[in-house]
Amino acid sequence: MIRPEAPVLLEIRDLHASVADQPILHGVNLTIRAGEIHAVMGRNGSGKSTLSKLLAGHPAYTVTGGSVSYRGDDLLALAPELRARRGVFLGFQYPVEIPGVSNLEFLRVATNGRRLEQGAEELDTFAFEDLVRERLAVVQMDPAFLERSVNEGFSGGEKKRNEILQMALLDPLVAILDETDSGLDIDALRIVAGGVNQLATPDNATLLITHYQRLLDVITPDYVHVMAAGRILRTGGKELALELEDRGYDWVDAELAALAPAPVEVG
């Protein structure tokens, strides 16, 4: 939903970043307003996963220039846990398995941290169980997964559903979903995408990081950005994703070659 008057939630300005002294982002600009769904597409190594992890505060990435403001505050100055509590959510491409930590306890601790920040009451174990059982429906998840260790022994599809369940509980203002479609079969993709659609409101925004058009068949983006060599090369509507699907990424290379000097690609 594009509304020019909607408040800006996230504003990325000329963002430069590196990992292990290797520059990866070379000046990313992106403005996200409430109610919008953005898709960032690009080849492996184009910097799109780096962008998502950097926004969530992954310690391996160093910002070397530019700024990110989140609802007017300097996002980059916040510790990762504060970003999360204030409403920035990253859905992981590879959700991490944490043996011995109960999924239910993990979800409760995380949810209560966010609720405190929102000025809501913390939920005790009983109230939380009621909430979590209601939210399970968003991703059609079996309650048995609550009793297990976080993501341990989950299939690829179950892990992604667990990510969307966390999103449903944390009620983020900006949800960044990093290759949420990877490793999903068609049924799982529909369930996960259905969850994302249900959670999208005029007050929040979604940033989808994806390689393929197929996710965008089930979640309709307002904007599609094509990323290459650490910057956004082109921005358009959902038709840009279809064009990419038709023409592949080769034209991106041609466009990139026209820019000089060509930055080094990172694998």
């Binding site: 969530a56 990762p80 509590r85 991490v96 601790v109």
Partner: peptide, 24 residues
């Protein structure tokens, strides 16, 4: 980082991981 990205502070995240490790 996964725990931190869900709003759990680093010190608590370490404790949670250690508890999980011992709990087994």
């Amino acid at each position: 980082f996964y725990l931190q990205s869900r709003g759990i502070a680093a010190a608590n995240a370490s404790r949670l991981l250690l508890r999980g490790f011992c709990g087994e």
